[in-house]
């Protein structure tokens, strides 16, 4: 279901992209700002991937960007994301108290990232306007290890950096609606240390964002 949905989205965007190339380049406008609502799929990396290996489609992102000069924009992003995975026959030990429990473990992390964003749109007046950007901010994260009825968790704040590439795609030359496709790499100072013998530091992830935009002229 997810794959079919993703393929339909990609097909739809490609169709629009092809249509847009047939029109005169002079048509279109430079927006004054735009607002985004995106569906966010997270791919954990490095140590974070050892904690939860599954890619997770559970996430959304809200953003606003304001054109400062030419293609230069500044704005914000706020998100909610969750990654989770079930591991069977995992042993959780507390050596100091001589306790150990082997059971099905459910690991999940949910996070609320918030970032200031600066980006540069290469062709801000075109229907397809690719951009490169950088997000700087922080996250609130909760890391949970559910061992049957026990919920062992820690909460952490962090600092994060997110370089991003993407494209704003207007759904018509004068339409105020558009689509957003973006891909970013995120580095954080967050860490997971729920297991004594394996901790995850500097959590990293890749995010694929597909969403809608409301464009203001």
């Amino acid at each position: 279901m997810k794959k079919i949905f993703l393929l339909l989205m990609i097909f739809g965007l490609m169709h629009r992209l092809v249509q847009s190339q047939d029109k005169p380049a002079s048509m279109g406008f430079i927006p004054s700002s735009y607002y985004t609502f995106s569906w966010n799929t997270t791919f954990t990396m490095g140590d974070f991937n050892k904690w939860v290996g599954n890619a997770s489609p559970a996430g959304f992102d809200l953003g606003g960007r304001y054109f400062i000069k030419g293609g230069l924009v500044a704005g914000f992003n706020m998100s909610w994301q969750r990654v989770s995975q079930i591991y069977t026959n995992e042993t959780y030990s507390l050596p100091a108290t001589g306790q150990a429990i082997t059971a099905t473990n459910y690991r999940f992390t949910w996070m609320v990232p918030f970032q200031a964003v600066i980006a540069y749109h290469l062709m801000p007046d075109k229907m397809v306007s690719p951009y490169i950007g950088l997000g700087i901010g922080g996250d609130y994260m909760e890391h949970h290890l559910l061992v049957e009825e026990y919920d062992i968790y820690k909460t952490r704040w962090d600092f994060s950096l997110t370089p991003e590439i993407g494209a704003l795609i207007k759904l018509g030359y004068y339409s105020q609606w558009g689509a957003l496709v973006a891909f970013n790499y995120k580095w954080t100072t967050n860490q997971i240390d729920l297991y004594k013998d394996k901790s995850s530091k500097n959590l990293q992830m890749l995010n694929l964002k597909v969403g809608i935009t409301y464009i203001i002229r």
Partner: peptide, 19 residues
């Protein structure tokens, strides 16, 4: 757009859950 949004919400609810 609303259809796409709705499908996205369905996808969100299909993530891994603890039995």
């Amino acid at each position: 757009l609303l259809t796409i949004l709705g499908m996205g919400i369905i996808a969100l609810t299909s993530c891994t859950k603890y039995p």
